[in-house]
Amino acid sequence: MQHVSKFEMAIGRIDAENAEDPNVETVNGVTFPKELLYARRMTEKLLDFYPEASGELQIAARAQHICRWKIDRKQYPMDRVGYLKWREALKKFHAEKTSEILKDLGFEDTFAERVSFLIRKKQLKKDEETQILEDVVCLVFLQYYFDDFAAKHPEEKIIDIVQKTWAKMSESGQQAALELKLSPEASGLVKKALQT
């Protein structure tokens, strides 16, 4: 029988949780649970952007949105303060959920704590792995979700969001973003945002 490592078991457990997502996304005629697809895109982008990623960073990337649908945006006021509270609640929830899985599988506390630290984006711009994770989040957003998002909002809001996203990224993250094959519309918006 093939030996399955604890790391592979953790990835499997995270994927099993995300496979429960009632929201779906269809790619090339194949339908996926939305957060399972997001998690796989995060792993793929992380290993492309930073192939030497530690186990902790890989698990944090995979679990970035674990069971995200369980905390609805509508549970918080539909303003900037409500949005920020929702984001904080999500980070805490994702970190705790992942930590439970890791402890259940017998990972050391220090490993689980590091994964939680990364998921909660602690010390952005100061901690190298937190920064790499943020870069990957931004790259996945730009590559896979930006077009749909941009279609639903006024241009000035999109430009503001691109500028804020850009400010969170490292130089190497920004460089990787400029190399993405974006749609002409998305490329145009990014160019406008960076020129403004």
Rank of each mutant, 00 (worst) to 15 (best):
K121Q: 09
D127F: 10
E129Y: 12
E108Q: 15
A112E: 00
L124R: 11
K103V: 07
F107W: 13
T110P: 07
K125G: 05
T110A: 14
R87W: 00
Q131F: 15
K126Q: 12
F117R: 14
A89F: 04
T98C: 06
A112L: 04
I119F: 04
W86V: 05
T98H: 09
F111H: 07
I119V: 03
T130V: 09
R114D: 02
L105Q: 14
F111Y: 14
H94D: 13
D109E: 14
E129C: 05
W86G: 03
D127S: 11
L133M: 12
E100Y: 06
L133W: 04
L105N: 15
W86S: 07
E100I: 09
L105P: 09
E128D: 07
W86R: 13
L124K: 10
D127M: 05
L90M: 11
H94C: 15
R87A: 01
T130D: 13
S116K: 15
V136I: 05
R114E: 10
Q131Y: 08
L105K: 12
L105V: 09
D104Q: 14
K92E: 01
K125V: 09
S116V: 07
K91H: 09
E134S: 05
I132D: 01
V136T: 03
K97P: 02
L90P: 10
V115R: 01
R120H: 03
L124T: 06
K125C: 06
K103Y: 01
A112W: 02
F93S: 11
